[in-house]
Design a protein around this nucleic acid. Structure first.
Lengths: 221, 221, 221, 221
DNA sequence: CATGAATGAGATTTCATTCAT
DNA sequence: AATGAATGAAATCTCATTCAT
């Protein structure tokens, strides 16, 4: 209409960056709204592309979601597995190490929204739940049980049912993330994440410690 | 059509019973599907009434949901508040008592699905979240902090940040419920609830115990 | 806005008439546009209801289509089967009778659009094709073969492969309908349907007639 | 990357070959799926080119379709016109000849799918319908009428309305193709095409024959 | 010439809510 | 008081067409 063209291209071609721009946007929206309530159109808008472009790279909403998980959590799991395999030292240190790594790679990043997301949607999207369970949870739990087993074997931890112990160990951490991404918004004052995570691991270690050992035992000596 | 002979009413239902039949049905469906995915039609069908009848008693899906919470959790909270107010004895026993009561009134009942539900939907339904936070969570947390404060004051528990401690105390229990209502369906073998809850409270108490006291200290003596 | 209400209800309740109003509208639109290109919204509009109402009575576009066929063709087939079963007289008369009945109940009615429709969509909607084949075509062809078999047995028709003969018999009639509902719109002058159907059946009978019989034989005598 | 040594072109394709490769692929896909359901992407893939390339040679899906028809049917029509113009002998033989030619050039080739295709899409794509009608159908019908006229004039065929006769003549053949490309897929056993076509022409000739002539008359003599 | 990434309109289906009966 | 028929907005996914490279 106006005379001055100097027109910008309607779009530019960036095949290799697009997918990760889209998963990044998708992570944000999924975490904000949940899987079901996320509109692919919103994801597209946030990634700065059109609806159709999302389908160019991902066959369906489900596949997009899986891609997000794959990109964000699988590497973190793999990293943790390496830590466990390579660890020399006390089981307590190994657990501290795992928690710290998890916090850095997942908990304190946008991926920290995924646990709440999976919990929310697993009932309604069994296929996604299964994928997440097989690819993430099983491996994470195996790691924890391995660390706990070592500690019990060495006498560092008291002897307990492994599954129970494992559940007790991860609860405070996952619960924290879940809380942050759900009801925390109603709170007036909230916990400092870093401090909480530090306290939580120590509390867990006290709970695990064999009599006569553990943080408080040392303190008494 | 015909002269209506001593006609029996097609339905006889006491007005005051209806609402709770509907909330009971609603609880089930909400827990199964979540708030957003619940179809009022399913709720109506499960309550044995028609869709329109639901709107006779509840203005909207949201109001129905609030009614469910009100009916299920507020009484349990009130009950717990009474326990705390009336408790004489160690803080450990008080905590054990609270957990036991919570498990009986909430955890082991259909209402046990509510925490996961609230976590899932709070982001998308802030009004509901706020309601739940004000009516349930604040009061529950206050209870826990009171018990913890007493224990710290008496020297039974070590001195910690109250908010942190409170979060650490409820995490294993809420996380357990959340898990049962979400990803547990993917598991092959699952924990025994009663045993887990028992173990969890003891573990928490160990974690809280002041040096030289607590379960393991007693055991050592 | 204005003061005078006298407002008309937004809709009225007519459960028992609605389904057939909808199938009638659907038949029209399906015949006009084909199955794939028909928008349920158009069907709804033509039936004077909303989109949602269509789904109240029919689970899907496919089910709606099947309902149209069921309503329009199955009764006609059943009627024809009765004719064949009850017929006493020459095979030629039976065929004439069948053609006449078909023309009255199907050919000259809006259902006359269905053959073209099925031909058009069968490749892309195999489920519909199968339904139509099983419920309509098989039965129609069986009828024709039965009439032809009788004529050959009695010496009225010359002996031919039954399937071939059957195909040759229905071709001019179905082709005529198909033509009317497709390319006829390009024609400047078109055949008179009644006259065509009359000519066609006589031509078919000549083609079938055993030597020394048939229309032309009689004429010669 | 490297200095491009005597580089060979990645593709060498003669401009003039491309279009017909594309129309050949298009014919296949159009016949399989119909016009509306055909994805240009599939056509491109089957032709071994990219989607954009199709648009290099054809302005739109419609133009591509017209090109297919032009390539496949116009030459066959022209050929048939030559046969009629050059024919010396009986009208029956001329008809046999035309049918045989049509079967060889169209019926038994991939172009045999076009009649069903045109019938299916003519309502929704009037421009295509008109094109087909003007370029193909009018000419084909004119041919048939000419052959019939000669036969009636010579007394070989009985006297009938030309348009009716013409319709009756082509029906069994076009119907057969249409059937093969639509509902035949539901059949368990199907007719042998060659045999059917042979039978059909004889049947048609019997139907046309003037009394005392025609196949059965000869047979009787 | 050729490619294929990007676009965006469009259609089926679902379901909370309304309201005539 | 109870019913359930009717509504219509909303969301995923498809694909002809365009155009930067």
């Amino acid at each position: 209409m106006v005379s001055a063209p100097a027109r910008q291209p309607r779009w530019t071609r960036r095949k290799n960056v697009r997918p990760s721009e889209i998963t990044a946007a998708a992570l944000e929206v999924f975490v904000e709204k949940g899987f079901a309530a996320t509109r692919l159109e919103d994801v597209a808008a946030r990634a700065g592309v059109s609806k159709g472009t999302v389908y160019l790279y991902f066959d369906s909403k489900e596949e997009l979601f899986k891609a997000v998980v794959r990109e964000g959590l699988i590497p973190a799991i793999a990293e943790a597995e390496k830590r466990v395999a390579g660890h020399r030292g006390s089981a307590s240190d190994l657990l501290r190490d795992l928690v710290r790594g998890w916090w850095q790679l997942v908990g304190s990043t946008p991926y920290g929204g995924l646990p709440k997301l999976m919990i929310s949607e697993s009932r309604n999207f069994p296929e996604i739940a299964r994928f997440y369970y097989e690819e993430v949870i099983i491996r994470a739990h195996r790691l924890l049980r391995e660390a706990l087993r070592r500690g019990m074997e060495s006498g560092e931890f008291r002897s307990m049912d492994l599954n129970t112990a494992q559940f007790l160990v991860f609860s405070p951490f996952i619960m924290f993330l879940v809380w942050q991404h759900s009801l925390a918004c109603c709170e007036s004052e909230s916990l400092d994440p870093g401090a909480y995570v530090g306290e939580a691991i120590e509390m867990v270690l006290r709970g695990l410690a064999a009599p006569g050992t553990g943080p408080q035992a040392k303190a008494r000596r």
